[in-house]
């Protein structure tokens, strides 16, 4: 928290190097292990534990195995519905994408701040991280598209039923919308995560400030803000799932463009 008991809603997004600040470099770039990296590691460990615990391969599954198989089946269905049979080979990637984002989002929402000295950090609230995922997805789309269809992949920019007299305009619009994809992917997730966390932090600062200024303001402003916080916490859990789903869904739709060019 910032000084003088004030809540700085942006402080939660601060990246603090934990170690390796001085000498961990790649080609002159510092790659210190930060709190962001730590939470990505935690995401990986939790996700690994979750999936490993459910990959027992029993014919009659237990609860845990049902959860993991449900998650895998969900991604499987998503790809089967959006890409078709050719989408089967992308299940590992889309699964990794979806569960990494989902676990990262949800872990960042955990009320670990209640423990002194522990600050939860949502790595997906940084466009440097979401950008990596978006560029990965977009690169896969480009590679698959050009590998599968060659230069014919450019016909993606001329949708079916384009009138001949619009041929000078539609491809330009389509090209722009195509090029915007990685940015929209990265920014949507980062903005959704950041906005929710900022909102919660701002409301909590209302609760703290109003309660500090007395009984009256605490009742008039503090209590409604607190009620709103609870509701928004529920909403944030929903958003955490929805944003992971949207990322995975859009990636699979883009993969569909690359796999089954109209």
């Amino acid at each position: 928290m910032a000084e003088q008991g004030k809540v700085d809603p942006m402080h939660q997004f601060m990246i603090e190097p934990l170690f390796g600040t001085d000498h961990w470099t790649i080609a002159g770039h510092n790659i210190a292990f930060t709190n962001s990296a730590l939470w990505m590691l935690i995401t990986f460990v939790v996700l690994f534990a979750f999936v490993a615990g459910g990959a027992k391969g029993q014919t009659v599954p237990g609860r845990w195995q049902v959860m993991v198989e449900g998650l895998v089946g969900f991604i499987d269905n998503l790809l089967a519905a959006n890409v078709g049979p050719k989408g089967k080979k992308y299940v590992p990637y889309i699964f990794s994408l979806f569960s990494f984002i989902l676990f990262s989002n949800v872990l960042g929402l955990l009320p670990l701040g209640l423990i002194k000295g522990v600050h939860p950090f949502t790595s997906t609230s940084h466009f440097t991280v979401t950008g990596v995922l978006a560029i990965l997805s977009f690169s896969i789309v480009l590679i698959v598209g050009f590998a599968r269809h060659g230069l014919h992949f450019f016909s993606l920019f001329v949708p079916h039923g384009t009138p001949a007299w619009l041929l000078w305009l539609i491809p330009v619009i389509e090209l722009i919308s195509f090029l915007v994809r990685p940015f929209s992917l990265a920014l949507r997730l980062f903005v959704a995560m950041m906005a929710g966390h900022v909102l919660l932090e701002v409301l909590s600062s209302f609760v703290i400030s109003s309660t500090n200024s007395g009984m009256l303001w605490g009742t008039v402003v503090g209590l409604p803000s607190f009620a709103l916080m609870i509701a928004i916490c529920a909403l944030e859990i929903l958003v955490a799932g929805i944003q992971a789903y949207v990322f995975a869904l859009l990636t699979s739709l883009y993969l569909n463009d690359a796999e089954n060019l109209h």
Binding site: I31, M40, F44
Partner: peptide, 13 residues
């Protein structure tokens, strides 16, 4: 931080 962010994101993803 961009280098560290990108590096660790790639590593853990």
């Amino acid at each position: 931080t961009y280098a560290s962010q990108i590096f660790w994101a790639l590593i853990f993803f």
